[in-house]
Design a protein around this nucleic acid. Structure first.
Lengths: 380, 380
DNA sequence: TTGAAAGCGCTAACAT
DNA sequence: ATGTTAGCGCTTTCAA
C-alpha cells in the first residue's frame, strides 16, 4: 500500500548481497558486472518492485538528460509534433518533459517549470514570446523554436517552407484549370505571412497576379510589423475581411485565422463573389470553410475546390477528406530533437535554421474547374 | 551562454554573504529571515539568475509534491481537463507532471515515466489499462481515474453522470415536441454504456420506449462485457450500424464512436429513415453528423435537431453552435486534484467515486419539431 | 569484477 | 535571526 517506503538502491543491494555500485551499474545496463551478479541484482530489483529515482540519479550525474517541450494544449498540430518528438527522443537517450501552455498558463510559466526541472534544452512549439525574451532564455540553455521562424542568432529554428507550401497548393489548382483562386490567411499567426507571400508569388508566376485589392475589412494596411508575428496569434482581429474585386482573375486574400470559426467567417465573406478555388491557412480553418460551403449547398470540389495546410488528423478524416499541404512532423521532430541534443553535447552546428519542404497531399476537396458560376443555394 | 555552470544555493549565499539556510528559507518564502537579509538574498539571486533545482529540493525533502497526469494527446476533451488540472493544482501547492499517451507511446510507458519522477499520486484521464493492472499500480501510490469508471476498491474515480446527461438531452428534445429521437452511441468507449442506458431510460420514461430493434449492423447482441469498457475504445468496430425500424416512435440506437468519422458513418445510416432528433455520444462525433446532414441539404434544427456531449471547444464554435451536455471539467479537475492530494496526505476519504452532474447547454442545433418529413436533397 | 567513500543541491534539525 | 551539520538516493571516482 502507499505508505511503505519505496525501495532504494541500497535495499536492492542488500537483498542481492552486493554493493550499491554494482546495482547502479546493472540498473543502467553498463558493463562491469558479472552475469551471475547481474541476474541476482535484477531479480532482487524485480521482487522489490524497485524503480530508480530519476531525481537523485540526475542530481548526482549533474545532468538531467531532459529536453523540455512547451506546447499549446489546444493545438492539434502540436499534438502531432509531440507525438513525433517522443519517438525522436527515444532514439537519443533523452527524455521529454512536457509543459503545456493553456488559456490560464502562459508561456513564461510553462518555461519556468521546465527550467526548475533542469532541462538541458528547450523545444518550443510555436513560441509566442517576443524574440528578445527568447534570446535571453537562450543565454541559459539551448533553445529550439519549432513551427515559428525566430529571427535571433541565439535560437535554432525548425520550420517548414511555408511559402513553398502555398506555391504547391496554387500550382496544383492551376493544373486543374483554376484561375480564380483566393487565399484565406492566418492573420498574424506564425507562418501566415510566408504563406501569404507564397500564394502571391505563385499567382504572379502563373500570371494571375494583377489587380490585388484591399483585403482587410478594417482598411488597415499590411505592415512590416506583422511579419514578425509578435503578440497573441489567437482570438483577436479575426473578423472576416471583405474581399473586394470587380471580377476577373487576381490575387485575393481574405483575413482568416487559426480556427474553424475564422474560416467560416472568411468563407462567408467570399460568398459574395465566389472563386473556383480557395487555399486556406490551415486545416482547422479549412474545416470551417467547408462547413459554410456545405450549408450553402455548394459542392466541393464541384463548385469550389479547397486546399488546407498541415495534413492534420482533421484533414485525413474520411468525411472531410481534405486536400492539403503536409508538414513533415516526423522530420521536424527529428530535426528539433537532434539539434537540441547537438547543442547540449556541444557538437558543431551548420545552419541555425532548418527548413523542411512540405508536400501536397491530394484528397477529395480539389478537382477540375467547372464551367459556369456556382450560386449559393441560400443564405444561412 | 550555455556552458557556465548554473548558480546554486551556495553561490547565492556567498554573494549575499549569508548561509545557505537563509537563502533556502528566503527562496521558499518561509518565515525566519530578517527583512534586510531577505532583500539582499533576493537581489543576489536575481543578479545571478538563480533558479532553484527542483530535483535536489524534492530529493532532500523526501517528497516530490508532484502529481502525475496521464492524458491522451489527441483527445480534445483531455486538453480541457489538463487545462483545468493546472489551475486546480496551483491552489494546492502541488505541481503537475504531464505524460502523454500517443499512438507510439502506450499507457504503461507513460505511467512508468511518472513513477520514476517520484510522483506522489497519479491522475489518469480515461485510462485504458485493465482494472487489474490499475489496481496493482494503486498498491504503490494513490491513483485517481477521471472520466472512466473503474470498478476497483483501490482506485478513486471522478466521472460525470453519463446516464443523467443523456436523460437531460432527451428531456430537452421531448420538451421541444420530438418523439422520434435516435441515439448515436460511443461503442465501447468509456461512458458509452451509461449514456446508452440514460437514453433508453429517458425514452421509456417518456413512453417512447417500445419497439427497440437490433442496432448493430453485425447482428451482435449487447452483452455485459461492454459495460466494463475494457479494450481499446478507438478505431475498431465503428462501422455504422443499420437502424432498422418500421416507423413509429421507439428506441433507436446506432453504433457510432468517438470521432467525426464515426459520426458521419452513423448519420448516413440514419438517413434512410430520419428521426427528428439525434443525441450523439460526444461533440466530436456530433460534428461528423452535422457535416453529413449539411451535405444532404438538411437543415439543423429545422429538419433535424442534434445534441452532443462534452461541451468541448468544438461545440462552442460559432458556426457549429452545438446544443450539448456539458461535463464540468473545472469541477472534475478540482475533485481529481483534491482527492489525489487527500490520499497523499492521508486524509480520510468518504466515497471512492465522485460523480459530477452534467448540465444541458442549449445552443443552435436544437429546435421545435417540424411538421412533415424531411427529405435528403441528394446522396453524396 | 567488486566495494568504499565522496558529493550532486538542497532542506531539516539542531545549534548559536 | 542566523549558521552548522547531516543526509535524501543516486553516480562516480578510486582502491582493492
Amino acid at each position: 500500500m502507499p505508505g511503505d517506503r519505496r525501495p532504494t538502491l541500497s535495499d536492492v543491494a542488500a537483498r542481492a548481497g552486493v554493493s550499491k555500485s554494482l546495482v547502479s551499474l546493472v540498473m543502467r545496463d553498463e558493463p562491469g558486472a558479472g552475469p551471475e551478479t547481474r541476474r541476482r541484482v535484477l531479480d532482487a530489483a524485480a521482487e522489490l518492485g524497485y524503480q530508480p529515482d530519476s531525481r537523485a540519479r540526475l542530481l548526482r550525474s549533474g545532468r538531467s538528460r531532459l529536453l523540455g517541450v512547451v506546447f499549446g494544449i489546444q493545438h492539434a498540430f502540436h499534438a502531432d509534433l509531440v507525438t513525433d518528438l517522443y519517438t525522436a527522443a527515444r532514439e537519443t537517450g533523452y527524455e521529454l518533459a512536457l509543459s503545456a501552455v493553456t488559456p490560464h498558463r502562459a508561456e513564461p510559466e510553462a518555461i519556468t517549470g521546465l527550467l526548475q526541472d533542469r532541462c538541458e534544452a528547450l523545444i518550443l512549439l510555436g513560441p509566442q514570446s517576443p524574440v528578445a525574451s527568447l534570446a535571453r532564455l537562450a543565454e541559459r540553455l539551448p533553445v529550439v523554436a519549432v513551427a515559428r521562424g525566430v529571427r535571433s542568432p541565439a535560437i535554432d529554428v525548425v520550420r517548414n517552407a511555408d511559402a513553398d507550401g502555398l506555391r504547391r497548393a496554387v500550382d496544383h489548382l492551376v493544373e486543374l484549370g483554376h484561375r480564380r483562386i483566393a487565399h484565406i490567411d492566418g492573420g498574424r499567426a506564425p507562418g501566415a505571412a510566408d504563406r501569404r507571400s507564397g500564394y502571391r508569388d505563385a499567382m504572379r508566376r502563373h500570371a494571375l497576379g494583377e489587380g490585388e485589392g484591399e483585403w482587410r475589412g478594417e482598411g488597415e494596411r499590411r505592415g512590416q510589423a506583422e511579419r514578425r508575428g509578435e503578440g497573441n496569434p489567437r482570438g483577436e482581429g479575426t473578423r472576416g475581411g471583405r474581399g473586394r474585386r470587380g471580377g476577373g482573375d487576381g490575387i485575393r486574400i481574405v483575413r482568416g485565422g487559426l480556427t474553424e470559426e475564422d474560416g467560416a467567417a472568411a468563407a462567408r465573406a467570399l460568398l459574395e463573389d465566389l472563386p473556383t478555388a480557395i487555399t486556406v491557412f490551415n486545416d482547422r480553418c479549412a474545416t470551417g470553410v467547408l462547413d459554410v460551403l456545405a450549408r450553402e449547398g455548394l459542392k466541393v470540389p464541384g463548385d469550389v475546390s479547397v486546399v488546407g495546410y498541415d495534413d492534420s488528423h482533421l484533414a485525413r478524416l474520411a468525411h472531410v477528406d481534405l486536400t492539403t499541404i503536409a508538414q513533415d512532423t516526423a522530420m521536424m521532430s527529428r530535426l528539433a530533437v537532434g539539434r537540441a541534443v547537438a547543442r547540449v553535447e556541444g557538437e558543431p552546428v551548420q545552419q541555425r535554421e532548418q527548413v523542411v519542404a512540405p508536400h501536397l497531399v491530394v484528397r477529395g476537396t480539389t478537382g477540375p474547374v467547372r464551367a459556369g458560376r456556382p450560386r449559393p443555394r441560400s443564405r444561412r
